[in-house]
Amino acid sequence: MTMYAALLRGINVSGHKRVPMAELRTLLTELGHGDVRTHLQSGNAVFSSPSDDADALAAELERAIEKRFGFPVPCLVRDGSYLAAVAGACPFPAAELAGGHLHITYFGQPVDPTRFDRIDPASFLPEEFRLGDRALYLYAPDGLGRSKLAGALSRPSLTGDVVATSRNWNTVRKLVEMTTRTPAAHRGADA
């Protein structure tokens, strides 16, 4: 069994695309997954599956969510080893930064790095970004809500039609922990 995290994009924001986490846990269990847990209300779920096809798991979850809730929700599914590798490759001093100042945007597929050549890094300092393995690391010392660089990086001309969803460093660390520790260690810790 492999532990996965499902990262749902754009749910439970200002009352739109409401997906209660209890119902998401039920849905994942009905799809045959085990060790199902959620983290926060922003679309983070962890589950175990014998499948080794994360893209097929994501597509299955997208279909099930649309059928159950009546609206589409883009989903990324990543295994614990990928999440740990991406977190471990962070080019910024994560241990020294506040969790809300560092973010990872996960991409559904690789993004052509030359697209980001259009961004003038000096014009956004002290904010910075770096690309990783289907991921973008963003350091935004004033937070994501005030980040001008985050807005520039999210332009469709840079990412095309690639599904992308961001998580702050606190959530990144928690998802790594939830997908790399044994499921029994979590019982009672998260819903």
Rank of each mutant, 00 (worst) to 15 (best):
M3W: 09
M3G: 09
A6R: 03
A6D: 08
A6M: 10
L7I: 06
N12W: 03
S14D: 09
S14Y: 08
S14W: 07
S14A: 13
G15K: 12
H16R: 15
R18W: 08
R18C: 09
V19Y: 03
M21R: 01
E23Q: 14
L24G: 03
T26N: 13
L27T: 05
L27N: 04
L28N: 02
T29L: 11
E30D: 15
G34A: 12
D35W: 02
V36C: 04
V36I: 07
R37L: 14
T38G: 02
T38H: 07
T38V: 09
T38A: 03
L40A: 10
S42T: 11
G43W: 01
A45F: 02
S48P: 06
A54H: 13
A54W: 13
A56C: 14
A56K: 13
A56Y: 14
L57A: 09
E60H: 12
E60P: 08
L61E: 03
L61C: 08
L61I: 10
E62L: 06
R63T: 13
R63H: 12
R63V: 11
A64V: 08
E66T: 06
K67T: 11
F69C: 08
F69L: 07
F71C: 06
P72Y: 06
P74R: 07
P74K: 07
C75T: 14
C75Y: 07
L76Y: 01
V77E: 06
V77N: 05
G80R: 01
A85H: 08
A85M: 10
V86E: 00
A89G: 08
C90D: 07
F92E: 03
P93F: 06
P93N: 03
A94L: 05
E96R: 10
L97W: 01
L97P: 00
G99V: 02
G100A: 15
L102S: 01
L102W: 02
L102T: 01
H103I: 06
H103S: 10
Y106S: 00
F107E: 04
F107Y: 14
G108H: 02
Q109K: 13
Q109N: 11
P110E: 12
V111R: 00
P113Q: 11
I119N: 01
A122E: 15
A122V: 12
F124W: 07
F124P: 02
P126G: 07
E128C: 13
F129D: 00
R130I: 00
D133E: 11
A135F: 02
A140S: 14
D142S: 15
D142C: 14
D142G: 14
R146I: 14
S147E: 11
G151T: 11
S157E: 13
T159W: 00
V162Q: 00
A164H: 05
R167N: 04
N170W: 01
V172P: 00
V172G: 00
V172D: 00
R173Y: 01
K174N: 02
L175I: 05
E177H: 07
M178F: 03
M178C: 04
R181Y: 13
R181Q: 15
P183F: 03
A184E: 14
A185F: 05
H186W: 12
G188A: 03
G188W: 04
A189Q: 12
A189I: 11
D190Q: 11
D190K: 10
A191Y: 14
